[in-house]
Amino acid sequence: MIRVQTEDFDIGAEVKALTSGRTDIGALVTFTGLVRDTNGGTVSSMELEHYPGMTEKELVRIEAEANERWPLQASLIIHRVGKLAPGDNIVLVVTASPHRQAAFDAAAFLMDYLKTQAPFWKREETGDKSYWVDARESDGEAAAKWDT
């Protein structure tokens, strides 16, 4: 399941909804990405822009690929858009499987792919200035390691 939304998410509630009524799940991994102040206390807010339509398609595609690679029993990606503040949640990835390794690996894969494929762009505001965050080469390398 994937969701793109402006509002915050509640990790506990999402996990509960995913596991409710099930007794077959043995391992559940959650990853939460937060807005980080990269500039020593000067980042006042962050704007998350995205490409409506393509964003959802990409997240569905990435999730389907994770489900092909690992025996997942459930998966969830929530990504926020719009104006966020340092400390706010940006992204939630949840994966569930009978054993832990698949859940750990699939969660890492989902994040690595999301960061290099899903059409989101961050703009940081510091005081009266704002600038687009540059893509990191290390994110590309992290995603590429899943291709081997």
Binding site: G33, I90, V91, T116, A118, P119, W121, K122, D139
Partner: peptide, 10 residues
């Protein structure tokens, strides 16, 4: 057709 910079989500 859409044009954009390298993506920076997550």
């Amino acid at each position: 057709i859409a044009f954009f910079p390298p993506v920076t989500g997550g």
